[in-house]
Simulated assay, not measured.
Amino acid sequence: MPQHKEQKSDLSREEAIDRIWQLAEDIDMCMFVTWDGEYTRARPLSARVHRNENAIFFLVNAESAKNGQLERFPKVTMAWSNNSSYKYVTISGHAKVTNDRSKIEQLWEKTDEAWWDSAQDPEIRLITVAPDESELWDSPGKMVAVAKMVMSAITGAKPDVGDNAKVEL
């Protein structure tokens, strides 16, 4: 596994990891990016973030192009974005598609009824991602970030608009 230089941040490695997991859980919807052998493909999915299992889960349809892509190319990237507060997280890892009915039942939420009748729907599959690296961009908020960028434009100094950290998970 390649070693990545951790970025300059006021956060310790442990604080960055905590913040990454928390933001991914809080933001929920992510862009789930796969590779099809020619292009990257991204689609929005609701993430079930379970740090205690070191896993991120997704409920998906059995007949989906992404499932075939994951069989051939299991490395994925997930990107969470909270534009209103300038908070962003990416997590990369290895994904696997299964038909784990017990886990699907455990992860089932009322909102899933928009896509399937129940957790017993035979068309549901489970994608499990084991994360291995992540990056965080965490601003103190839009107003502070904008003010710092304006001051930077006036003074010519580079703005410090929050924490950026790249860590292995």
Results as ranks from 00 to 15, higher is better:
residue 60 V to A: 12
residue 110 K to R: 11
residue 72 R to W: 01
residue 21 W to S: 01
residue 78 M to T: 03
residue 5 K to Q: 15
residue 62 A to G: 11
residue 149 M to V: 10
residue 11 L to G: 03
residue 41 R to M: 13
residue 40 T to D: 02
residue 145 A to Q: 04
residue 101 R to S: 06
residue 1 M to P: 08
residue 112 D to Y: 13
residue 107 L to N: 08
residue 32 F to P: 02
residue 128 T to G: 01
residue 18 D to L: 03
residue 117 D to S: 14
residue 13 R to D: 04
residue 12 S to H: 07
residue 92 S to C: 11
residue 52 N to E: 15
residue 121 D to R: 09
residue 132 D to S: 11
residue 134 S to F: 00
residue 127 I to R: 05
residue 85 S to I: 10
residue 169 L to I: 14
residue 140 P to S: 06
residue 4 H to A: 10
residue 113 E to F: 01
residue 21 W to G: 02
residue 46 S to R: 10
residue 71 E to T: 11
residue 97 V to A: 03
residue 156 G to S: 05
residue 92 S to R: 09
residue 68 G to D: 14
residue 70 L to H: 03
residue 80 W to M: 03
residue 64 S to W: 06
residue 44 P to D: 08
residue 100 D to T: 05
residue 125 R to M: 09
residue 111 T to C: 09
residue 7 Q to S: 13
residue 28 D to A: 13
residue 60 V to C: 15
residue 10 D to T: 08
residue 36 D to I: 08
residue 101 R to N: 03
residue 59 L to M: 11
residue 160 D to R: 03
residue 60 V to K: 01
residue 98 T to F: 04
residue 39 Y to L: 09
residue 49 V to H: 10
residue 141 G to Y: 03
residue 109 E to Q: 15
residue 44 P to G: 03
residue 62 A to V: 05
residue 59 L to V: 04
residue 143 M to S: 12
residue 106 Q to G: 00
residue 34 T to N: 07
residue 21 W to L: 04
